[in-house]
Structures are given as C-alpha cells and as structure tokens.
Simulated assay, not measured.
Amino acid sequence: MDRHQRVLTALVSAGVVAGVLAGCSSESTPVGESSSASADRTSAARTDDPKALLDAAANSTAELDSAHLQLAVTGKVPGLKATALDADVAKSPKNAAKGDATVLVGTDEVKAPFVYSDGKLYANVGGAGYLDYGDGKSIYDVTVVLDDKRGLPNILRQMAAASPATPPSAVPDPTSDVDTTAVAAQVPLQALAPILGTVPPEQQKKAVPVTAWIASDSPQRLVRLQVTPAPGAAVTIDLSKWDEPVTVSAPPAVSQPSEKPTEEPEPGQPTREKADG
C-alpha cells in the first residue's frame, strides 16, 4: 500500500470525511494585524475547534519566509504539468526557489532540476541544459505556495470559511515526526487553481475534498495539505524546514532555443523565452 493509500485509509477509519457544503467565502486576514497579535491568536487556537485551528494555521503559514516543499501527484490532474516537486522556497527578500521537478512533456514524465530567481524560471528539462522559461507559470508557479492571498494560507482560510462539517481528528501525518491534527473541508477548485494548474471555467465553482494536517503545538503551521480534485487523483503538499535560510542564484549557463518560435505554443505546453534575432 503506497503513502497516499495509507493516508486515505487513515482518514476513512478516523471519520475525517467532509460532506458537500453549500457555499464558500473568501475571508482574509485583517489588514494591519501585528505579528505578535497573530502569534497570540495562533497559540490560543483550540484543537477541537476546526475554524480556529484553520485560521491559526493560515496565519502561521502566511508568516513563513521560507520552507521546504514536497509535492506529489497521483492519478490525472489535467491542468497540472508538474507531477512531483522537491524544493526549497523563499518569499523574502524576494520570491525564489530551487530544487528538482518531474514534469509532463506530452505524455512522458521528465526530470527537470530548476531554479527560480529574479522573476524567472530556469529549468533543465530532460538534461537539455538550463533554459529560460520566463515567469514559469506554464510549468508550475512554485513561488505561489507561500503567498498569503493565493497560496496555502488562502486555501486554509477557504477551508475555515466552509465551516468544516467534521471535527478535527488526531490523524498523524505518516511522513512527519510532528504531532498533527487533521481537518477536512470542501473548497472550490477556483481557490485551488494556483496549486492545481488551469481549471476550466465550468469547473471553478465545483467544491472538492481538502484535508489539512496542522501542527498540534504552537505555532500551528501547516504540515501537509491533500487535495482530491477528481476521483482517483490526489495532490499532496508537504511543508518542512520552516524559516530555514534559502540561498538561490541563477544558473551560470542558460541556453536559448536555437530557432525563434514562429507561433504561440500549444495550450498547456511549456513556453520558453524567444531567441534573439
């Protein structure tokens, strides 16, 4: 039984299954809240109160300057080009990331070490050498993960706004030695698009199951998030090494395509900065 099957089995046995809820809102952290006020609220969050626990996790995760990110995809998620990521991500003093990815090129999974620096993604897809992929969103926008308004903190707030139907349950994260509490809720795909990739307009309001594993001790940061965007598919994000320093610099050698593209790329295919000439 693989890791994701063990997680799902644990959730079912513990009763952590969210029912379909009628609606969601997009509440955000109050503007101007001090870090000390946020920390006080985080430490006071009750582990038997799902909304308070999710709000505390959203605030603590939003305050992170850096983290180690692992992303794993099982099944088919149509809008997602990355199937695995293992990377260090930093948002201060400016967005940066480095690590290894597995991406889809056509129907093939290809290894792609990458660096995100100074607003650009440099990736070595399939050993072809580092290329400039512009803002990198055509492959995977790894820097959005810690973003307060679009990343994991926002997803946690969306879960809190959904008034989770099931109480928190002490279901452990099977890959971490951190004590965690699990909370499940339904979240619209539109709010999940930054980490799931392109979502068709007709699917954006569809609510899908999301489970968050939150550190039981203060600060109650997010340890794991698992999304089930479709039957048989799962996207799991693990966070660790909270606020450990991350140093990123652009690769010393970056190649450009030998021929200037004459037309726009096919939808969903990686884009590259056009060659001069």
Rank of each mutant, 00 (worst) to 15 (best):
L131S: 07
S92T: 15
N59R: 15
K98C: 05
S43T: 10
S25Y: 09
T74D: 11
R41M: 10
K205F: 13
A96C: 06
V199F: 01
V12L: 13
P267E: 08
T175I: 03
V227D: 01
G277V: 14
A18Q: 06
D88G: 12
A234G: 06
S216C: 01
A67K: 10
G99T: 11
R224Q: 14
T198M: 07
T9S: 12
P251L: 13
K241C: 05
L196R: 09
Q269Y: 09
P93I: 09
H4N: 10
I155R: 02
P201G: 06
A39Q: 03
L156T: 05
G99Y: 12
S66T: 05
Q220E: 05
D118T: 07
T247V: 09
T180K: 07
D243N: 15
P113F: 10
E27C: 10
Y122N: 13
A97G: 07
G23V: 11
G106P: 03
T143R: 14
L152M: 13
A250M: 11
T47W: 04
D177P: 03
A212F: 13
Q186R: 15
A96I: 06
V187N: 00
K120H: 14
L146P: 11
T42P: 01
V7I: 15
R224E: 10
P194G: 09
E273C: 02
L189F: 01
R157N: 08
A162C: 12
P174W: 04
Q256L: 13
V248P: 12
D173P: 05
G127H: 11
A170D: 13
V248D: 12
S38Y: 01
A87C: 15
E33Q: 13
D100A: 12
G32P: 00
V20L: 13
P229D: 02
Q5Y: 09
D276C: 03
A191I: 00
P172N: 00
Y140P: 03
D148Q: 13
K205N: 15
P168H: 10
N59K: 12
G119I: 12
D40K: 13
A161C: 04
A84Q: 15
P200H: 03
L21V: 15
T175M: 04
A275E: 08
A182G: 01
P153T: 03
